[in-house]
């Protein structure tokens, strides 16, 4: 452990934290899958409304994606801006 400064340690922990932060992607993945599954069922029931269903599904999925993107942003900040290592 010689030669490892406190800054190095903080950077290493930031990398681990960034990896942990993108676990936030699990939630939106499940949510988007559920939305897509229900949209597929809806198209099966009413094929005439396919375009409406698709646009509604995409809108909902894009909103559900937000929480995952927050995790991504935290990971980006930890890796590239490094607020803790200053």
């Amino acid at each position: 452990m010689n030669g490892i400064t406190g800054t190095d340690l903080i950077k290493a922990c930031s990398a681990i934290g960034a990896g942990l932060a993108v676990i936030a992607g699990i939630g939106p993945g499940i949510g988007q899958g559920i939305a897509a599954g229900h949209a597929a069922a809806a198209v099966g029931r009413n094929p005439g409304a396919k375009s409406d269903i698709t646009s509604t599904m995409l809108l909902g999925q894009a909103v559900a994606e937000t929480t995952g993107l927050y995790g991504l942003l935290i990971a980006m900040l930890l890796l590239f801006v490094q607020p803790l290592a200053k």
Binding site: E65, T66, Y70
Partner: peptide
């Protein structure tokens, strides 16, 4: 905040 972060993070993730 959520409106702007959603747009920002999506485009940034693509860029990265």
């Amino acid at each position: 905040i959520s409106l702007s972060l959603r747009l920002f993070a999506n485009v940034l993730s693509g860029t990265v």
